[in-house]
Design a protein around this nucleic acid. Structure first.
Lengths: 265, 265
DNA sequence: CAGTGGTCTAGACCACTGG
DNA sequence: CAGTGGTCTAGACCACTGC
């Protein structure tokens, strides 16, 4: 398990190198970036699974034939991107959506009063779960072709008994083969945690486009509000490693008791 | 200008130190955090102004009597928080809202088609600018007391001729003494850049609460849309150094041609 | 060319965790 | 106590900027 041929470049061979491909424009790439890429590959290939610890910095340093400081800088960036999780005295772990503090890492809707998790666990009701064919815009979002097989899920999240979020979710059928309404309904914990354990798909990053739209097309009934009530429309595309899109999600949020919270740095 | 009494602690005196106050709970604070605090103080006190360069890492290292690596780590964090701006070969600069790339650092509304700045400069119309007394909720947001003097500004931003954003802005009167509708109207560039140059107030961080609300109370007329049209309501509190709130802004965004864009890490 | 930030190393020591 | 991540140093060298 140690000492395969992971060594990056022959140490100070940053000139006229044939390298290992995948780069043409960036004429110069620091060592720690190459190490970061190697660690990323191991993550993507599942050498270490979410929740597990990766080798110690010292071990990685000898494996990659660089100093500990260089490994450290690589891990620094991966930790800043929430791909790894450092814990002093214990080790460095592959980040996961299954931990308590990451329960709602991608859900920015919080109650107007109280703290983010103060309403207790959300009630989740699967309204629909079926195979379908990708429309043009769904295909574009998921980097598929129009007509490709997708899974479509519709569910309602309720807080303190009040239906608050309606979500339409589209997933590429291939990586999620075998996903059913039952497995979704029976699973306790975040949906993205199920994706990790059951389908080996880890969501790493997401983008959201937010609009204000009236409740129509039956959404008013599922959320039990008056037709035409303004809703927050949140279109999310979630990505795995290497910026591969793996989910399109259109959420409709009630904002009479909750609000979308964002911090600008 | 060099060698005042900035030296942090007598080097390795992290035990039972009387320190310089302002800390009780964190039993241990690394050197680079103390350096970061010293740099932050100099920024807050205006020793280096927005857009200017700060001393080189080597100079700061000798001034603070630490190694360059320690200064570097302190600056690393300040740069990550967008307080400083490193430029290789040139120096490290105090971040500013007056630069081209930071034009809309706090405005997350982008056109549905085209790139963020593709519509040309926004047309800004000051609708109102007057002195007022802080209501209970305005006072709470700005850490004032109810009835304290505030400045209230209302303006409309138009893109490609179409009114798109209506903003109500509240500022504490004291730090912004002398701000008038004329100065706002005549100033070219972001409002936060004017705050920096004219009032020595630098916005560092902000929080936004987003809701969907119908256009009422005259907002429909200013935005030239039908009454009741869903609008994105964006309530922002902007902070200076030390988390002091300096602005409350309630924005109403049309989202038929634009959307609020957010990335989740 | 000198000056700046950026990278890399080797080694010492500290703080935290768990058995 | 050993093992982990976290801090700090001193020094060498590299990449970029501008004169």
């Amino acid at each position: 398990m140690l000492q395969t041929t992971d060594a990056p470049l022959p140490a100070n061979a940053n000139d006229a190198s044939t390298a290992s491909g995948e780069q043409l424009a960036p004429s110069f790439s620091p060592l720690y970036q190459q190490i970061k890429g190697l660690i990323l590959n191991s993550l993507r290939l599942g050498e270490w699974k979410p929740g597990e610890s990766i080798p110690s910095e010292k071990d990685l340093a000898t494996r990659f034939r660089v100093s500990q400081g260089t490994v450290r800088k690589a891990i620094d960036e991966l930790a800043a991107e929430n791909l790894l999780d450092r814990r002093q005295g214990k080790g460095t772990f592959v980040a996961t959506h299954a931990t308590q503090q990451a329960q709602f890492r991608f859900l920015k809707l919080v109650p107007d009063t109280g703290t983010p998790g103060s309403e207790g666990p959300a009630q989740r009701d699967i309204v629909e779960c079926r195979r379908a064919r990708a429309s043009a815009d769904v295909a574009r979002a998921l980097a598929l072709r129009t007509g490709d097989a997708v899974l479509q899920v519709r569910r309602v999240l309720s807080f303190a008994g009040a239906p608050t979020i309606l979500e339409d979710i589209w997933l590429p059928a291939a990586p999620f083969k075998g996903l059913t309404a039952e497995r979704l309904a029976n699973y306790q914990g975040p949906m993205y945690a199920l994706f990790e354990t059951e389908f080996n798909v880890r969501m790493v990053r997401a983008e959201e486009k937010i609009r204000a739209e009236p409740a129509i097309d039956g959404r008013e009934q599922l959320l039990k509000i008056e037709r035409g009530t303004p809703l927050l429309s949140v279109e999310r595309i979630a990505y795995t490693y290497k910026d591969v899109p793996m989910e399109l999600r259109r959420g409709y949020y009630r904002t009479d008791t909750h609000h979308y919270f964002n911090t600008l740095g």
